[in-house]
Computed example of a mutant assay.
Amino acid sequence: MINAIQDYISYLHNVKRTSHNTEISYERDLKKAAVYFAGQQIGDLTQITATNLNSYMLYLEREHMSPATVSRNIAAIRSFFQYMVREHKIQADPSEQLKPPKVEKKAPSILTVEEVDKLLRQPDGETMKGIRDRAMLELLYATGIRVSELIHLKMGDVNLQMGYITCTERGKDRIIPFGETAKKALEHYLEKARASFLKGKTSEYLFTNCSGTPMSRQGFWKVLKGYAADAGITADITPHTLRHSFATHLIQNGADLKSVQEMLGHSDISTTQMYLNMGIYKIRDVYTKAHPRK
């Protein structure tokens, strides 16, 4: 089954041109399923039945997986078996009747402009690490890119003179501008700090860790969590919180949906439309807390 999974991931990458994050999560989910089936003495794809898949879903629920995680596993499994049928590796699709659990849609968490400002002022501008971290945070909020895109940015993706970065996903480039504040933070990092992380080595990546290698998602998440605590932000902040805040603040200040959609890289504008409601959610929250007759 592992070889079949690798073939499928190659298909996603080379033919479907799915995002790197999708490939990673699907591969992880499918390999987890393969381990489970191996434990059930099922080593061949043709042996897997609808009953086996339902048992696996119950196993995931017993493992206290969230509905969203179970839904993603189901999406990976269904897509995998559909591919196997198309490739004539199996005759029938055992995943046809799998139904994802209902996932409650929550409004994305966002920071106020004041909270973002406080967060971005936390890195110590007198240290190499602080200079790098400020440049990363400023660029993340200035462009709304995903953390995976941030840590994979290369030197050639940044045009300081014109003030924009280029992100490539599924073979398509998108150009995202950034303002003077982010530009100054990047210039300061490139002039004063980047060489100290490389320690004489060369790297095509814009940001690196202390070993001169690209920073991991987990590494940046820890950096962000630390500065959020220093800023006194009690909300459960993630790198995506800055992406949500970027989009919401743009729309609240008059940006049109189409432009925000292009900067975020959303294929469907309906995904971007949720940010229209974020201002309403914030106002409602204030009302609920403050009005004497709620």
Rank of each mutant, 00 (worst) to 15 (best):
Arg121Ala: 15
Ser19Phe: 05
Thr241Ser: 04
Ile24Val: 15
Lys89Gln: 13
Ile74Asp: 05
Tyr227Ile: 05
Gly265Pro: 04
Asn73Glu: 06
Ile90Val: 15
Glu104Val: 12
Asn3Arg: 11
Asp29Lys: 09
Lys99Ala: 14
Thr241Asn: 00
Lys129Ser: 13
Leu60Gln: 00
Val70Ala: 01
Ile24Leu: 15
Arg134Glu: 08
Asn14Leu: 14
Ile237Leu: 13
Asp173Cys: 06
Leu139Val: 02
Thr49Asn: 01
Glu104His: 13
Gln47Arg: 12
Tyr83Trp: 14
Thr166Val: 15
Tyr36Cys: 00
Lys32Trp: 05
Tyr275Cys: 09
Leu160Asp: 00
Gln261Asp: 00
Lys102His: 14
Met84Gly: 07
Ser211Pro: 00
Ile175Asp: 05
Leu186Asn: 04
Leu12Ser: 06
Met136His: 05
Leu224Ile: 07
Val35Trp: 07
Leu58Asp: 12
Gly171Val: 05
Glu104Cys: 06
Glu63Lys: 15
Met57Arg: 11
Lys222Gln: 14
Ile42Leu: 07
His188Ile: 01
Glu187Ser: 05
Asp93Glu: 10
Leu150Met: 08
Ser19Pro: 06
Asp29Cys: 09
Ile176Phe: 02
Ser79Cys: 03
Tyr275Ile: 07
Leu160Met: 11
Thr46His: 10
Lys199Asp: 06
Ser25Lys: 08
Asp236Ile: 01
Asn3Cys: 01
Ala231Gln: 02
Leu98Trp: 09
Val158Gly: 00
Phe207Ser: 06
Ser196Ala: 12
Val85His: 14
Asp173His: 09
Asp93His: 12
Ser95Trp: 10
Gly125Pro: 07
Leu120Gly: 08
Ser148Gly: 13
Ala135Thr: 00
Ala34His: 03
Asn73Cys: 13
Asn253Trp: 09
Ala255Pro: 06
Gln47Lys: 13
Ala182Pro: 05
Glu23Ile: 07
Phe207Thr: 05
Lys258Val: 07
Val15Trp: 04
Tyr83Ser: 10
Ile74Arg: 05
His152Leu: 06
Leu198Val: 02
Ala290Cys: 13
Tyr227Asp: 04
Leu186His: 04
Ser203Lys: 08
Ala235Cys: 02
Tyr205Phe: 15
Ala235Met: 12
Glu114His: 11
Thr202His: 13
Thr18Ala: 15
Thr213Ile: 10
His20Thr: 10
Glu126Leu: 12
Arg72Pro: 01
Ile165Phe: 03
Lys183Cys: 05
Pro100Ile: 11
Asp236Trp: 02
